[in-house]
Amino acid sequence: MTAHVRRKTIIAFLGPAVAALVLVGIAPLLYAVWKSLHNFNLTKQAQSRFVWFDNYATVLTDPVFWQAMGRTATLFLISVPIQIALGLLIAIVLHRPGLTFFKTLTRLSLVLPMATTYAVVGLLAQVMLNQKYGVVNQMLGWIGIDPINFIGDPTNAFIAVIIWDIWQWTPFVALVLLAGLSTVPPEIEEAATLETKSQWLVLRYVQLPFLIPSLVAVLILRTADTLKLFDMPFTMTRGGPGSATEFIAVLIERVGNRQFDIGMASAQAIIMLAITIFLARLYIRFFYREVN
């Protein structure tokens, strides 16, 4: 069927894009690997030397690195289940027939948080969560809760990051799951609703199998994006107070950009990338086997 296309033609069509991605994606990555094998600090460039895997050994035994990883994992383990639970609820409500106009409006408003510039989310968080002038504390006051020092207290700052992560990404999860729900054949769904009144049974035995691909997509992307998470905590707290919100990407930025230790930062970044790819493949293997 397919036309016989000469090799030259294929190269002409694909070449420029591939060359561009090699230039901006692969070349810097290789350079990062090379630098990660060096003791390389911007302020002491003369002392730069090849040290084999010393940086990796240092990073892998560095409690600061693992604490940042632990923080990132904690954020993921708290906020993603909440995002999935709330997102599923929203998706189910939007999936029900009726109130079409209001549902369209709700869907449009769901699009806004995830498009918002992540840095602006951090700024908004600062303004809205301020202990004295913040509107969130005013609202908490209406239901009798004393003002909370969100930004200045380590635990509260962490909670603040979780809250804003949930605000920004629950809509995303909801819309992905909604797309998944729409793949359930309507006749099967109708037949099931006639059989039982329990929304839970329909969800568990009829809709869930169709939701697995969406859930896998959510898990993979939320994992990758949580590991990438930089803009929002950086803007809101600069990783502080202390290192309470120093997630892995924030830590790497600090080591490379504020301590100028590019060799070490590169080693950290490469390890993070390896973990990301490992997790993505694990999800695919684990969950897709369940479906098939």
């Binding site: 296309v5 694909l14 490379g256």
Partner: peptide
């Protein structure tokens, strides 16, 4: 439109770009 060897690998490579954190590339 075209069929060629390594098409799947090319796809996979494009997909992985979504997972690379900017912090990996920024310093180099």
């Amino acid at each position: 439109r075209f069929e060629f060897r390594g098409k799947q690998d090319l796809w996979f490579w494009f997909i992985t770009n979504r997972f690379v954190s900017p912090v990996v590339l920024a310093f180099p």
